[in-house]
Amino acid sequence: MTFDVNAFLIILTGTLIAISCGLLGSFLILRNMAMIGDAISHAVLPGIVLAFFFSGQREGIAIIIGAGLLGILATIIIDYLSNKVKLQNDASIGVTFTWLFAIGIILITVFAGQIDLDQDCVLYGEIAYIPLDLIVTENNTILGPRVLWIAVINVILVLLYVGFMYKELKLTSFDRQFAQTIGFSTSFINLSLMGMVSYTTVSSFEAVGAILVLALLVVPPATAYLLTKKLKPMLLLTILIGFLTSLIGYYLAYFIDGSIAGAMASVSGLFLLVAIVYVTLQKRTSRKPIAMPTELKA
């Protein structure tokens, strides 16, 4: 196979997005908040559409702010419903995000023709068109694909966030009460994580769509979580799986001529399946000799 610049750009963008999502997703699943990730990835839609409509442009800070606000609003509504209204937690999540997502879809249909956004883009993004959409400066220098730059900025910010907040995130994820006791503001850390998840969702939205972001948020970290017991290896493994997902996903989509984002989600699922099978088999073979004496004692 010869070196294909387009393929390289798409895989690179996919990898960067998978890394941003995976790093944040690791903390989500450690905090048992995977479905909050689902809720946020659906709920940012109306923010994107409205910001798009009012600012009239696809790129730019307006969309990120609009969607970020909606993401945080969604977590606040969920929190309000389950703590103040006393609706059970899973239903609070379900009610909130389906409602916000429905608003988003209705807005897209109402504004159809006025904005360059459609239902397909919402569902699976347009990562395949990345190489066509270039940033060109005034003196005609081509700076490379716009969406790639967005992904680069996103991944830098996520790395900075995780780097600076590593201790806080780790402690609040594993021992919330202890973290509170020694004076960490758990609600601030939580809200900042939700803010980063919302921002990453939006930033990845154009490339992979609102729903498949969830696959990148949850599946590679879940795979890594099964294979290791320490946080740092888990994060590194997540990054590796993110890269492989992007690479193999691209060629799968290429060969069966389908959506790259869909293929990436499918491949990440395959990795998870392999990890599950591996772990269960290992448990079965290692269990017998160790488990016997403790059972006898009991």
């Binding site: 995977a34 729903i211 696959a215 599946v219 879940a222 979580y225 389908g258 959506s259 772990v279």
Partner: peptide
């Protein structure tokens, strides 16, 4: 596995939907 139920739900949901999107496209 040691995965929590909500993580599993999110993972299964997104992977199945991803496969669906792949086939649909």
């Amino acid at each position: 596995t040691k995965l929590k139920e909500d993580t599993v739900i999110a993972a299964v949901l997104s992977v199945f939907f991803g496969i669906g999107i792949l086939l649909l496209t």
